[in-house]
Design a protein around this nucleic acid. Structure first.
Length: 307
DNA sequence: AAGACGAAAGTGGTTGA
DNA sequence: TCAACAACTTTCGTCTT
């Protein structure tokens, strides 16, 4: 067996909790979610001295968008070879370094800050590493195209995260992003639309089904109710009840109906709260569901069995 | 007393002239 | 740029459990 991560890479704390179901580790001190995919990424060989380590290593540092230079930065003349050159040549290199410095620092400084913020928010929302990576990629592209100009860094970060969530089908609502980042919901929506349009990122309209697992666990519903809600949603999609509607509202209504059918009743208020919609919306959707899908009979049947 | 229901008016965003 | 429009919200009174 290989070794697991023992220290939090963020704050160095060893106070980590392993959540085996989700395959992730959480740092108790700073809240960072450390992805632990139950795959041993450790090397299978051992190194006893410098020579062996040079020989046996097959890879360089991992490339990642969550570092401002993807972990691959090159510094001109950083190693000291410069000093073996003639003075004229040396001046040339110094100039080059200076230029590199000028060009890159603005973007890099921005990226460093932004990626720290991104880590904070995504950790707060317990987003998987793949989403964080994607968001970092989106943000990097946005910075390179100068799309951050005129917008706050934080709002672009939030927008990038929102986009990444959507693409990976682990949707969070704008409200949640807003709460985690402290940015106004409207602002996030605006920058989200802006950067996805400018970067040409195609995003499928989010599927109500994607919200079901999260909502049901927030409501502590059992698995049957949850899968019932999913089948209701599938029927609803066939009946064309889902297009043009807010996905969270539909998901909430389906969930509400499922609780009625499975005798695991939750109030409209409770469902509305976790889904971030109002009771009225649930009522409207739920009325449509009953009307179009003949679920009335199913509910009645259940009621009769009970009585 | 709490929950469910529905009408009416208001909000923010999209669309089409 | 404006008005029409659909989806959703807020508010509030009424009915049901």
């Amino acid at each position: 067996m290989g070794r697991y991560i023992k220290k939090c890479p963020e704050c160095g704390s060893i106070n980590l909790v392993l959540n085996k179901d989700r395959g992730e580790m959480i740092c108790r001190d700073c809240g960072l979610v450390i992805e632990e995919q139950m795959v041993d990424f450790g090397q299978e060989w051992r190194e006893f001295d410098q020579e062996q380590s040079d020989k046996r290593r097959r890879t360089g540092a991992p490339m990642t968008y969550t570092k401002f230079d993807r972990g691959l930065g090159t510094d001109i003349g950083a190693k000291g070879d410069v000093y073996q050159l003639q003075s004229k040549e040396r001046n040339k290199y110094f100039k080059l370094r200076k230029w590199q410095h000028r060009v890159s620092t603005a973007i890099e400084r921005n990226l460093k800050l932004a990626l720290a913020e991104l880590k904070r928010v995504s950790s707060y929302l317990k987003l998987p590493g793949s989403v964080e990576e994607e968001a970092a990629r989106v943000y990097t592209m946005a910075v390179q195209r100068g799309l951050v100009r005129g917008r706050s860094m934080e709002s672009v970060v939030a927008g990038a995260l929102y986009a990444a969530c959507r693409r990976h089908e682990v949707p969070r609502t704008l409200d949640e992003l807003s709460e985690a980042s402290g940015i106004d919901k409207k602002e996030i929506g605006r920058t989200y639309r802006f950067i996805t349009r400018e970067l040409g990122i195609r995003i499928l309209p989010s599927n109500p089904v994607d919200y079901i697992p999260r909502f049901s666990s927030a409501l502590k519903l059992n698995a049957e109710t949850q899968s019932k809600a999913v089948t209701i949603l599938e029927k609803a999609q066939k009946a064309e009840l889902t297009s043009g509607r807010g996905p969270t509202g539909i998901a909430a209504a389906a969930l509400y109906v499922a609780t009625l059918i499975n005798n695991e009743k939750r109030t409209q208020r409770e469902v509305a709260d976790v889904a971030g919609v109002t009771e009225v919306t649930i009522r409207n959707r739920y009325k449509e569901l009953l009307r179009e899908l003949n679920l009335k009979d199913e509910i009645k049947k259940k009621m009769e069995i009970v009585s």
